[in-house]
Design a binder for these strands. Structure first.
Lengths: 373, 373
DNA sequence: ATTAGCACTCTTGTCCTTAGAGTGCTAAAG
DNA sequence: CTTTAGCACTCTAAGGACAAGAGTGCTAAT
């Protein structure tokens, strides 16, 4: 997969220049215009030869015989892996992002929403954020609050301070006290278990000793079980859908429709994002300047995206963490011709800022780490 | 506003035919093609004359001199007010919608989401749904649940069975008991008041007698106040954005962008929907066949929409109700050339189904009405 | 190995032409 | 007086020709 014969330095320069130009203009770039914009020490004819070779090697493509070249997926891949230079965000930008995320300290969903929103706003592309999966987090508390006869609110508190709740129907006959009894029986029996390990059976057996007729109990237990399980529901937040229409690759309505239709198909994107595994970059380009989190983002370019209808896009994602085992994903999707370095620096910073906030949120579980600081 | 000189019957027929055809084809309709598709008892020349008059009267427009006619805003207005025939949904359709909405009985937000989604799905346009405003609903309960030292969940129960909650920070020193004391003091003091009438001052005075130092109390009271107030936050749900790209009026990327940009601008749509007042239709066309809710939908066509960037659209909305005073809005937006009758029948049915569910949800408050049935 | 030069290719924009659909007007028919 | 047939006119949309421009590949000279 990775090229065995690395490109010589001149080819690298040229490839980088081509990708940079194409990202900037969306026009196929020719040898002449390349020479004009970049101070090369050789002529357009040389570039022509080199470009022909780069095309033969699969890094560039020609839309038609007498046009300039555009990068292929492989070309972009080489670019993001080896060639591009990552920029740091300006003070101004970091301040703006920090400020925007500061408000939503306490609520996980709110933070994710805002992170997604700011990411899209700042990069000019579309952003996706997946709420963290909770299956490996531990149940800490479960409370049931009587709303009115027949209805109750089940509140589930997970490790790392995540709180989820759900409104349920219960038998009308049940009173508030009985409800609390059941809840604390479940809590006593299950707290400390991971969501994955909790089943309807374990819930039922936890409440075995509650002195209530089964008929009343069963429905409540079932609802409690559902409430616990749904704490692990993945939620996908999308922001900045409109931004993509600004790019020429979406000016063809057919393509735009295809893209947005895919996006709207339920579960596709959530499922795909959930599948992606972080492959820490083999070479760790440009080590992060003293920041705690290593920038292990994941880039999928064009055909690498295993979703029909998104083959003309690129997708940069990363993982944010709540505590140690709970992780969600946030990412940016845009045309293949994406300003990768800009996106990467933004996504890294947003991830990092989220992690800081979430660490504070989860401090109940991680006091040790907090104190070491 | 309403035309003083109503159109004679023939003009009405022709206008209706033109609008119907244009809705179906998106092509300007000419006298000849009209005659072909509709069994008129007069010739194309007569139609030409009538169409010229309809244009003079402002019901039709000509994109250019030698093209067919398309309806003007006024033409559409006459169409929806007097000409179109409302269709009833097929058994199959009502079943499908009912089935889809049946799941989300208990949760208001879930129901609204689904209603919006099904509406967009079934009509093929974009749907908007605004969560109900709660300012005139009454506070029934307020509970505070300790999550961990320093964090609590405030649960607000409103009349009509609406439940909202919010995660807040509280002083670390406060224990669960004190928290409950404060909550029940607030509840005792404020329950029965409308959200509108509750202020930071009333919250504070309700908790005046709680035996806790002010320093601890103040933050909690403030958070309780915020939680109560945010129960009235309007939330806007949008669904089926992608659908509009299918219509030729959105094939011009410029227009599409303009539309979606407006949509994305925060608060614009929520604000606009919130402003719309139901004007019950003056003539109540096609009285609803034995259904409890009168079909008081509101239609805004083209320029009638007071939002820049949506002037090429039409907007059909209606109100759904939770209990007596709490109302939200749900609507469909699409090209001016919208299949009005289809949209209206769908929106009416969805509204009605929502109302049924919500009436059941709010039954605690409306047992009387329920029993009369 | 590099580059200048040149012939060649292919797209894009412009202009022109033509076909077709639709109109308005006039005059004849009912 | 209303309706309709007929006709000349208008305007768009589609197709073809043409020139300009950008880019290429190849060859020969440096």
């Amino acid at each position: 997969m990775t090229q065995k014969i690395p490109l010589d330095e001149r080819k690298q320069h040229i490839l980088k220049a081509v990708v940079d130009d194409y990202i900037a203009t969306a026009e196929p770039v020719g040898s002449k215009s390349l020479v004009q914009k970049h101070p090369f020490s050789f002529s357009s004819a040389t570039i022509r030869n080199e470009m022909a070779e780069l095309e033969a090697l699969g890094y560039l493509e020609q839309p038609h015989t007498s046009a300039g070249r555009i990068p292929s997926d492989k070309g972009y891949r080489a670019y993001v892996d080896n060639l591009m230079q990552l920029e740091n965000l300006s003070q101004e930008e970091t301040e703006r992002i920090r400020g925007y995320l500061r408000d939503s300290l306490d609520e996980l969903t709110g933070l994710i929403r805002k992170a997604s929103s700011v990411l899209s706003e700042e990069t000019g592309y579309m952003s996706l954020a997946l709420s963290p999966h909770m299956r490996r987090s531990h149940l800490q508390q479960i409370k049931m609050l009587m709303i009115e006869p027949g209805r109750a609110l089940v509140v589930v508190v997970l490790s790392a301070g995540v709180v989820k709740d759900r409104l349920v129907r219960i038998p009308e006959l049940l009173d508030a006290n009985q409800l609390m009894q059941i809840a604390s029986a479940i809590e006593d029996g299950l707290s400390g278990m991971t969501l994955d390990d909790i089943t309807l059976v374990t819930v039922a057996s936890a409440a075995r000793n509650t002195p209530l007729p089964e008929s009343l109990l069963n429905q409540v237990l079932y609802e409690a079980y559902v409430a616990i399980k749904q704490a692990d529901n993945l939620e996908l937040f999308i922001d900045g859908q409109h931004q993509l229409l600004a790019y020429p690759e979406f000016h063809d309505i057919g393509k735009a429709r295809c893209f947005y239709d895919t996006l709207a198909r339920d579960g596709i994107m959530a499922g795909y994002m959930n599948e992606i595994k972080d492959a820490p970059d083999p070479e760790q380009p440009n080590p992060p300047c003293g920041q705690p989190d290593k920038p292990s983002y994941m880039i999928r370019i064009g055909q690498e995206i295993a979703v029909d209808g998104l083959k003309d896009c690129s997708f940069v994602t990363t993982t944010y963490k709540v505590g140690d085992v709970i992780a969600g994903r946030i990412g940016v999707i845009g045309p293949r011709r994406m300003a990768y370095s800009k996106v990467i620096s933004h996504i890294s910073f947003v991830k990092q800022t989220m992690n800081e906030h979430l660490r504070r949120l989860a401090r109940g579980e991680e006091i040790v780490e907090e104190q070491l600081k």
